[in-house]
């Protein structure tokens, strides 16, 4: 028997989804725009052939409709920004995953003074406005650097750059990893760890052979979350980045102030694809672990 639902419910749902996804859909469609100025949609580049431009409209290109995607690797600045972004995302994810997992394990298992306080303070970065965090991290770096640089030789002075971005990304990713791993640890049966120790495995072997394999889905989905957060981050990166450490979001923001070409849409489309895949995998892992 099917339950009768109000048609309004269906309509509302449809509108909400439309509201969420229409801009993304438009963005993707414009990635195939033949118009170079990308203000009006002038159709898809239909012809594959030598590059030919007429009145700012691409008539034919070697990659055909994927012209703007093919253009991406030719842009040195963009490639650099992409590389920086990936380096930052991978390193900060790795570090944040390790620290976050350790924090989750410690909070789950041990009772210690100020436990509630450390738990709450761990999660504060999740709710704090990003701009506040950006300013505070920048202030911290400036203070520490100005102090240290008086003692360091001129050649090895510290300054903002990839390193500072990575550190700040680790800082805002750790709470998310800890949160996801803790969810996985909730209801974790410690007797399997005791069983391993009882059978002769010391703490280290027990962790690698029993604990980690069992919480792996949570750790992985935490890592993927941290990865997508790092890929996307603009505000904190904006405050902590330095010369030569431009990331994709920063680069794109810079472009927007000048002109927008469909290249930007092509880049964004790839971006959405990567983030969407990472989030889907993270969700799947969490569901399987449940």
């Amino acid at each position: 028997m099917t339950k009768r639902r109000s048609p309004w419910l269906r309509l509302t749902a449809l509108l909400i989804y439309g509201f969420l996804y229409a801009p993304i859909l438009v963005l993707i469609i414009f990635a195939f725009n033949a118009s170079r100025t990308n203000i009006i949609f002038k159709g898809v580049i239909a012809e594959q052939g030598p590059y030919r431009l007429e009145q700012d409209v691409v008539q034919s290109a070697p990659c055909g409709p994927f012209h703007w995607f093919c253009q991406l690797p030719n842009n040195r600045e963009l490639v650099n920004a992409a590389r920086n972004t990936l380096v930052i995302a991978f390193t900060s994810t790795l570090a944040a995953t390790i620290i976050g997992t350790m924090a989750a394990l410690a909070l789950q298992r041990y009772h210690f003074p100020l436990k509630t306080f450390s738990e709450v303070s761990l999660y504060i970065p999740i709710v704090i406005p990003e701009i506040v965090m950006g300013i505070s991290v920048l202030t911290l770096f400036s203070a520490v650097f100005s102090y240290l640089n008086t003692a360091l030789p001129a050649a090895s002075r510290l300054s903002l750059g990839l390193g500072t971005v990575i550190v700040s990304h680790i800082a805002f990713s750790v709470p998310f990893v800890a949160l996801v791993v803790r969810a996985r640890l909730h209801g974790f049966d410690r007797s399997v760890e005791e069983a391993a120790m009882d059978l002769g495995a010391n703490e280290w072997i027990t962790f690698w052979r029993v604990t980690l394999p069992l919480i792996a889905p949570g750790v992985l989905s935490g890592a993927l979350l941290a990865f997508t957060l790092s890929l996307d981050d603009f505000i904190i990166t904006f405050f902590t980045t330095g010369p030569g450490a431009t990331t994709l979001p920063i680069y794109v923001y810079g472009l927007l102030r000048r002109i927008t070409t469909p290249e930007l849409n092509a880049l964004s489309t790839l971006w959405i694809l990567i983030v969407f895949t990472a989030l889907s995998v993270s969700q799947l892992l969490q569901r399987r672990s449940a």
């Binding site: 007797s191 399997v192 005791e194 069983a195 391993a196 120790m197 009882d198 059978l199 069992l214």
Partner: peptide, 28 residues
């Protein structure tokens, strides 16, 4: 520590390792 004592334990909830086969469990 437990891993250096000449005793073994059978737990109330069995505490088998869910990510290992029965053979791997018994052989651990």
């Amino acid at each position: 520590p437990p891993y250096q004592r000449p005793v073994n334990t059978v737990f109330q909830n069995y505490a088998l390792f869910p990510h290992m086969t029965i053979g791997e469990n018994v052989g651990f």
